[in-house]
Design a protein around this nucleic acid. Structure first.
Lengths: 208, 208
DNA sequence: ATTCCGTCGGACATAGTGTCCGACAACATG
DNA sequence: CATGTTGTCGGACACTATGTCCGACGGAAT
């Protein structure tokens, strides 16, 4: 009973340190070529220098581990594209530059991105997480497209909701493939093609 | 010893029938909302009215089962797009019509498509299978784009290889999402957006 | 020295995979 | 009818992984 006042509740920075060790160990293993699915808790715990049972003191299960790894995947990239506007005179060049930033961002985190996409295929929690992330991008794209249509710069018969999904879902798939399987030197070319595709395919699609 | 000549090697149509039962049972379970990953061999065998051990007399493992289910996924759709040519006067309308065909084709087989994409995330064999399928489409798109550039109808500074990947990888992701999560009534609108995106984003991208 | 905390290490129940084998019924042959 | 062959069944087995649980232990505060 007296212990409640006596103990100042264990050092929280220590707990955070162990957690960080586990996250870092997982990233290391992913970077080493392992797939998240075939990565056992045993292996992760060993790499982090911790008992397997201790893993479960920090994470409910592997899903929660992945969620924490992925926490910053969407937000930061969203901030990057948030600054782009299709109204600027050099909007296409700026779009290409922005997308290159995004590609490089995901290249840094390509192992985590690959793990999320891998697990999203069969795990509902991860799938919902990723859909929610992409949903933000889709909503933003739709907002911009509608504004362009209002201003008469994008064709009125363009279906903004669908076009947004095409841009974001399709674009993200290409980026994922780019950072997972293509050399970094091609990133700029990929970003430029992606930008041109979105620009002339939607924002400045000619009237037909 | 004599048996080798005496027995004319069991009725092959019977064997094919059991195999078909297992494939049909799997499709039924997938259509019922189960994910391929969480579908045990036990469950599949039971649904097909066959012992679990018998399953292994017909399929080496679950991967082979999925490969057989997926066998016709790419080929047929490839035949559809093979007839389209960007040189025709009404090429954009025809592209939309072709893509609508493709979307409907995959809608029919959406559970198998979803299973392939789900497993491709973590299984190398399925992943290679799917990459090979898409590779055909990418090659075809690149061929068409190069021809358009030669003819001066597509901009010379377009990077055909990258643009093809954007079209196919991005486009397939959109189609997969469309047939898995969107109502069939929207299929035509999606096909039209996809067509316009590819047409103005690549084949008839304005010079910038 | 005592008390408490977090970690360890390992046992446990559960569940799935792929292999193996003996039992058995169906059926064509002699 | 008796026999041998076939394909399927049903279940045991070894293996791997997950997530839970608990007693043991060592370090740190009192």
């Amino acid at each position: 009973m007296a212990s409640i006042t006596r103990r100042p509740a264990a050092d929280p920075s220590r707990r955070a340190a162990v957690e960080a060790d586990v996250l870092a160990a997982t990233e290391r293993l992913l970077a080493g070529g392992a797939r998240f699915t075939e990565l056992g808790v045993q292996r992760i715990a060993a790499e982090a220098g911790v008992a397997r049972s201790t893993f479960y003191l920090y994470f409910r299960d592997k899903t929660e581990l992945l969620l924490r790894l992925a926490a910053t995947l969407g937000d930061l990239a969203y901030g990057m594209v948030g600054t782009w506007s299709p109204a600027a005179p050099d909007a296409l060049d700026r779009l290409a530059a922005t997308l290159l930033e995004v590609v490089r961002f995901y290249r840094d985190r390509r192992h985590v991105l690959a793990a999320v996409l891998e697990v999203a295929g069969y795990d509902r929690v991860i799938n919902e997480f990723w859909e929610a992330q992409l949903g933000l991008f889709v909503a933003r794209a739709e907002e911009l497209l509608l504004a362009e249509q209002q201003a008469g710069r994008a064709p009125a018969d363009l279906h903004a909701a669908t076009a947004s999904r095409v841009m974001i879902w399709g674009g993200m798939r290409v980026i994922a493939d780019q950072v997972a399987n293509r050399p970094a030197e091609e990133d700029a070319a990929a970003a430029r093609e992606l930008a041109a595709n979105e620009w002339w395919g939607a924002f400045r699609r000619p009237e037909s």
